[in-house]
């Protein structure tokens, strides 16, 4: 447990020292979301309808931005080797890194989403569901993304390849996440979607660190 906390603290400290990276992903999210009304037109009814999808797709893309830097700096300066050789299981340390990644990229999206939702004229109930869906969904994105980040570590054209590998795997998160908000708006209730999203998260918490660890070991061989 101490090792996890140490890793999280270290990664957060590093994120504080290079704030620009975190902020870039955040502003990317804001800008992408704000571009859609410009491209589609300012009809409130239409915007309200497409808001969940747009916010979620933007969240997927914003999470992708930070992913290629999840393990790459540690790989470049040898920290990853030391993590593999640490007396704590690598799976735990990797989980710590994923948590830190979520705190720096996922959590800000959750907090920011309602503000952007207002641009699309979502009511307060829908905004609440959006936040809950993102709160469950963004850790899922970090977990799945970590597998891709580990697989493409030190690989030619890693960044683009990463999105090719990870985005198809994000489809269920997108469907249930955006679906929750839509279901709420159409009066069906978001419970089913949110529970499925939570089930996916539970599955990912179980499998993703394992797959990421295996991929990291391969990358270091």
């Amino acid at each position: 447990m101490n090792a996890i906390l140490a890793i999280i603290r270290r990664d957060l400290l590093l994120a504080m020292r290079r704030k620009s990276e975190v902020l870039t992903a955040l502003f990317f999210f804001i800008i992408v979301v704000s571009l859609f009304p410009l491209g589609i037109g300012p009809e409130t009814a239409l915007l309200r309808k497409i808001a969940p999808g747009i916010l979620w797709v933007a969240a997927l893309l914003a999470t992708m931005l930070g992913l290629s830097r999840l393990f790459a700096p540690d790989h470049a300066d040898g920290t990853l080797e030391q993590m593999v050789l640490a007396p704590s299981p690598l799976g735990l340390l990797v989980t710590g890194k994923i948590i830190a990644h979520w705190i720096t990229t996922g959590l800000p999206l959750v907090l920011l989403a309602p503000v952007l939702g207002i641009q699309f004229d979502l009511d307060s109930g829908a905004l609440g569901v959006l936040m809950i869906a993102l709160l469950i969904g963004t850790p899922l994105l970090s977990l799945i993304g970590a597998i891709g980040a580990a697989l493409t570590l030190g690989v030619r054209g890693g960044g683009v390849l990463l999105s090719l590998l990870v985005l198809p795997l994000y489809v269920p998160a997108l469907i249930f996440g955006a679906g929750a908000v839509e279901a709420h708006i159409s009066g069906l209730g978001a419970g089913g979607h949110l529970s499925l999203l939570a089930a996916l998260l539970a599955l990912a918490v179980f499998f993703a660190p394992w797959a990421t660890t295996a991929a990291l070991r391969i990358a270091l061989e």
């Binding site: 270290r10 400290l13 590093l14 020292r17 290079r18 470049a76 300066d77 040898g78 920290t79 080797e81 030391q82 050789l85």
Partner: peptide, 15 residues
Amino acid sequence: DMLFLGHHGAVKEEL
């Protein structure tokens, strides 16, 4: 029981 120091120092530049 083992300490390994590789080519890269595992030293974080920002810290």
